[in-house]
Design a protein around this nucleic acid. Structure first.
Lengths: 331, 331
DNA sequence: ACAACGCATGTAACCGGTTACATTTAGCGA
DNA sequence: TCGCTAAATGTAACCGGTTACATGCGTTGT
C-alpha cells in the first residue's frame, strides 16, 4: 500500500506539501495542488487513518455498551447513536454486554487504553474505575436507564411520570386491582416506574398490595411467568402493567393460554412501543418513547463533552401514552 | 497520561525492557520484572493501544454492515459475531446501513483506510471497488444474504431447500393455492426461496400462478400490505408463505382485520424464527435458523482469512422446520 | 587463562502521518 | 537593482509503542 512518502516522490514535492494538499488545499499553489492530486490518484493513495488518529491522539470512536442488542427498543436507540455519530465523523464500537459487569469494565478499558474517545452506557452502571478520570472529565454519557449519582450527562424519560400516566389510564378504565410486572430489582428505572405506579394508586385512594408486584427481566418469557404467578393469587388482577412491551407480549400469551381474553378479562399495558406492539393481538396499549432521539441526543452530548464542554446536563425526553386494544373498561 | 518512557524512567530501565516485561515477561530477569511492574502500577500506566495498532499495522477491528439492526434476526447474528470476535481479541464496528449502497461504500473505506482489518457483510452487495484488493485477498466474509460471484467466503442457509421444505409442509396440509410474500426483488436470497417454493409446487403437480406472488421488504407493514393485495384477488390463497417472520406477523394482522381466522381460513408461515414468532397469536410456523452460529462462523472465518488463510469456503448451516399454530389443514 | 556462548539489557530505527519552524521563491516598491 | 514581505515549500521532530541489532557481562569448556 502506498504511503505519503511515495506520493511525495511521485509528485516531486515534500511530504508536508502532500499532507497540506489533502488537509488544507487552499494554502498550496494551484500548480502544486494539481501535481499532488495526480500523484495521489496514480498511487491509489489512501491516508492511513490509524496513523492520523495516533498522531492526533483522537480515535473518533465511541464505545456503546448495550445490555442486549436483541431488544428492539435498544436497537432503535443504537440506530440513533449511529446516525448522529456518523454525521459527526465518529464510528460506533458496539458492545453487547448481556449485563455482565466484568464485560462492561473490559469494554470501558477501550477508552482508558485509547481505542475509543468516549462511551455511551445504556444501563445504570459505571464501568470505569473510580479513579480513572479526574473530576468532571468522565468521557461518558448515560442514556435510557440512568445512574443517579455519577458525574456525567444523562438522557432519560421521566419514568415516574410516564408510569403514573399509564396507571392513571388503567384507573380511569375502572381498574382497582392493577398488577405490575417489574424489571430487575436494583434498576433505578424499575424503581422510578414503580414509584409512578404507586403515585397513581395513592392519589386514587387505592391501597397498595405487594402481592400484585412481580419481578421480571424484560424478556417475553419473564412476562409469561410473572403473569402466571399473578393470576394464581387469591384475588387476581384485572389489569397488568408491564415495564416493557416484550414482557407484555409474554403476559398476553399467558392470559390467552388460561382461556381468558385480553382486554375483556384482563387489560394489559406495556412500555416502549416497540414495532411489534401494534402487531400483537390485541395491539398493545403502551408508552411510546422517542428511541432514536435518545440515541441521537446521547451521541451529540458525548461528542460535545469530548470537545471540551464541561457542564453535566440532564435531559428529559417526552413520552406519549398510546392507547390501543389491550386495555379496556373493567369487567 | 503516562507513557512507556515515563515508566522506564521510574523503573530505571530502558523502554525496551518495559515493553518486554509487558509482552514477554519470561525473557526479563525476575528482579527487573518486579521493578518494572511496580513502576507500571505507580504510574497508572496503560499502553496506548492506538500506538500499538499503528505500529503493528493491524487494528483488530472488524466492520459489520447490517441492513437494519432493528431486525431481530440480524440482532442475533450480530450477537454471535460480537461474541466470537471478542474471544479472539477483536472489536466490532457496527454499521447500520439501511441498505444504502453509498453508505456501505463509505463504511468499506474504513478497511481501505486501515481503520479496520476486515468486513462482514450481511447483505448481497460488495462495497469494495473492484480494484481495491488483489485477487483472493478481499478481507470480507458474506453471511446470511450471499453474493454468488464474489471471491470471498460465504455462510448461508440452503434457502432453496428450506423454502421447499416449508412449502411441502403446506402442501401436505392440503393447500393448493399457496401465496408467497417475497423479499426485495434483486436479492439472491429471495430468488432462492422463490425457487424452493416453485420446486415444491412443481413436484406436487401444482400449477404456478404469478398472481400469488407479492413483493415485500421484510417489514411487518409490507407483510400487511402484501397480504391485503393477495386477499383481494379473484381466487385468494388458502396459505401464505412469508419470507420472514416480521412480514408474517403483518400478514396475520391483516387476515384478522378481514374478520378471518388464522389458521382456519388462511394458514400463514414465516421464516427465521425470531423471538416473537412463538408469542404471536397463533404462534408462527416458521423455519428456524441458527442465527448466532451464522455470526460466530462469519467472525471466525474472517479472522482466519485475515491471518492469511487463502481458501474461499462456502458454509451451509442447517435449518429446522418449526411447526406451530399458524398453519393447519386446508378448509 | 582465554575463547565462545548465551542471557539480560540498552540503543535507536521504524510505523505514517502532522505541523512548528526554517528556508526558498515571488512580488512589489523605492 | 536591492531590500523587504508574504506566500509556498521543505526539513525534521514528534506521537508511543515494538523490535532488530548492539553491547555488556557472567558462565562454561578446554
Amino acid at each position: 500500500m502506498s504511503n505519503i512518502r511515495r506520493v511525495a516522490e511521485l509528485a516531486g514535492v515534500s511530504v508536508a506539501t502532500v499532507s497540506r494538499t489533502l488537509r488544507s488545499p487552499n494554502i498550496v499553489s494551484p500548480n502544486t495542488r494539481a501535481k499532488v492530486l495526480e500523484a495521489v490518484r496514480d498511487a491509489g493513495y489512501k491516508p492511513n487513518l490509524m496513523a492520523v488518529k495516533f498522531r492526533a491522539q483522537r480515535t473518533h470512536n465511541l464505545v456503546v455498551l448495550v445490555p442486549t442488542i436483541a431488544n428492539t427498543f435498544f436497537a432503535r436507540v443504537i440506530s440513533g447513536i449511529q446516525a448522529a455519530a456518523q454525521e459527526r465523523g465518529y464510528s460506533v464500537l458496539l458492545c453487547n454486554t448481556l449485563g455482565d459487569e466484568s464485560a462492561e469494565r473490559a469494554y470501558a478499558r477501550m477508552v482508558t487504553s485509547r481505542q475509543a474517545d468516549g462511551l455511551i452506557q445504556l444501563r445504570a452502571f459505571n464501568p470505569f474505575p473510580a479513579d480513572a478520570f479526574s473530576a468532571g472529565t468522565l468521557p461518558m454519557v448515560n442514556v435510557c436507564e440512568v445512574l443517579d449519582d455519577v458525574a456525567c450527562p444523562t438522557i432519560k424519560l421521566d419514568n415516574r411520570l410516564a408510569a403514573r400516566t399509564l396507571t392513571e389510564h388503567l384507573i380511569e378504565l375502572g381498574h382497582r386491582r392493577i398488577a405490575m410486572i417489574k424489571g430487575p430489582r436494583r434498576s433505578p428505572l424499575t424503581r422510578d416506574r414503580l414509584l409512578g405506579y404507586q403515585d397513581a394508586l395513592k392519589s386514587a385512594g387505592i391501597e397498595l398490595d405487594d402481592s400484585l408486584l412481580s419481578p421480571g427481566d424484560f424478556t417475553p418469557q419473564a412476562g409469561f411467568d410473572a403473569a402466571d404467578a399473578l393470576m394464581q393469587c387469591r384475588r387476581p388482577p384485572t389489569a397488568i402493567f408491564c415495564e416493557n412491551d416484550e414482557m407484555a407480549l409474554g403476559a398476553v400469551k399467558l392470559i390467552k393460554r388460561l382461556g381468558l381474553k385480553v382486554p375483556e378479562d384482563v387489560s394489559i399495558a406495556g412500555f416502549d412501543d416497540i414495532a411489534f406492539a401494534s402487531y400483537s393481538d390485541p395491539p398493545l396499549t403502551t408508552i411510546a418513547q422517542p428511541a432514536e432521539t435518545f440515541g441521537r441526543q446521547a451521541a451529540i452530548t458525548l461528542i460535545e463533552r469530548l470537545d471540551g464542554k464541561q457542564d453535566v446536563t440532564h435531559t428529559i425526553l417526552p413520552y406519549e401514552l398510546v392507547i390501543r386494544g389491550s386495555t379496556s373498561k373493567v369487567r
